[in-house]
Design a protein around this nucleic acid. Structure first.
Lengths: 190, 190
DNA sequence: CAATTGACCAAATGAACATTTCGGTCATTA
DNA sequence: TAATGACCGAAATGTTCATTTGGTCAATTG
């Protein structure tokens, strides 16, 4: 074997999906970028969707590493949670593939992309839920449903960062941290 | 004047928009239901969109009455807030026009409907923001940005009722009240 | 004469058909 | 035996044309 063709294909596919999204990426294109015959792709992956899934799964693994790296054991749970979520959202903003996918999800609604975006959301959710479970065990926070809490946290974060930006001026890192802390942890009641 | 033609037109249009949505409602249809010449509609409204706006504005007024009726001065601010939001969401679920509009917003994306749905959301938001301002003044809750808080509350409520229902079993009225109270008012910190 | 009407028009819509694109196969090749 | 790219059919896309529909206005009505 002269070169690792599978690796070439993965690299080419990652590049193309990131640049053009799922729908606009053709198998011919991937084959061409990878300098590989189109049929070769089908010796490794049964179809376009499977190839896509491989690329996205790689990305999810990277995301989890990214998130874990953000955690600093010397800081409080709240601070760490915020750092982690923020890192994930920054990651999303930076990461070409992520951006293309979320765009494609709302604009084009390709079924394969809808499915995958849901998978990504689930990966993020179970990651957060995991951390919440530990926090409850260690009595850092009140007793609560970890999954529902994770869900609410993610939605709230997205609301603060993405949705609010659409109608008012965007909030910076510190403001978001403060608000997140006020609303979810301290609570509004006096 | 034998009959109030404007009233006939409003009733016919309300019926048709509620039943078929904005796009699927034709001016011929409205004229026919109202037993009125099509041209007569144009003596009262410049175009279809204006007629639509009249109908929706009526609905918003009804919604505000509905919400205000839900308020019971003997209950706490938190309880009242919950009752109000819940009533609004129930209202939305019950009200034909509201349902059709929200459907049309995500499925057909008629520009006129997108605009109007935004207007409805704004009406709800300023209503909540109003109540929050009073609550801050009266020291019922902590100092905070009323608009952002209203925005977050609405999104959180929708998350709990609509979004969560899509992935897990739906929450009932009491559960939602409890969660809303836990997360937003009491806070998670110990 | 003021209010009302519906035939009429231009623009938007969508059905039907033609054309192109693209995922996936497989006979051929190295 | 691994790799390839010409080829196939289905699905997406583009095109044409008949129908629908928002809006106008001359005729009509009371």
């Amino acid at each position: 074997m002269s070169v690792n063709r599978k690796k070439l294909i993965i690299e080419a596919a990652t590049k193309s999906f990131s640049l053009f999204g799922y729908k606009a990426t053709t198998m011919d294109q991937v084959a061409k970028i990878a300098n590989v015959g189109k049929g070769t792709i089908y010796t490794f992956y049964a179809n376009k969707e499977e190839l896509f899934k491989e690329i996205v799964d790689n990305m999810i693994v990277e995301m989890e590493q990214e998130a874990n790296d953000a955690i600093n054991p010397e800081l409080t749970f709240t601070e760490n949670l915020h750092l982690t979520l923020y890192r994930l959202l920054e990651f999303r903003r930076e990461h070409q593939l992520m951006i293309k996918l979320f765009q494609e999800e709302r604009e084009i609604r390709t079924p394969a992309v809808l499915e995958i975006v849901e998978e990504i959301e689930n990966a993020i959710l179970s990651f957060i839920a995991q951390k919440i479970k530990i926090a409850i065990q260690k009595k850092y926070i009140k007793e609560c449903d970890p999954e529902l809490t994770a869900f609410l946290m993610l939605k709230m974060y997205i609301t603060l960062i993405v949705d609010w930006e659409r109608i008012r001026k965007p909030l910076n890192k510190e403001e978001i941290a403060e608000l997140f802390d006020l609303y979810l942890f301290k609570g509004l009641s006096l």
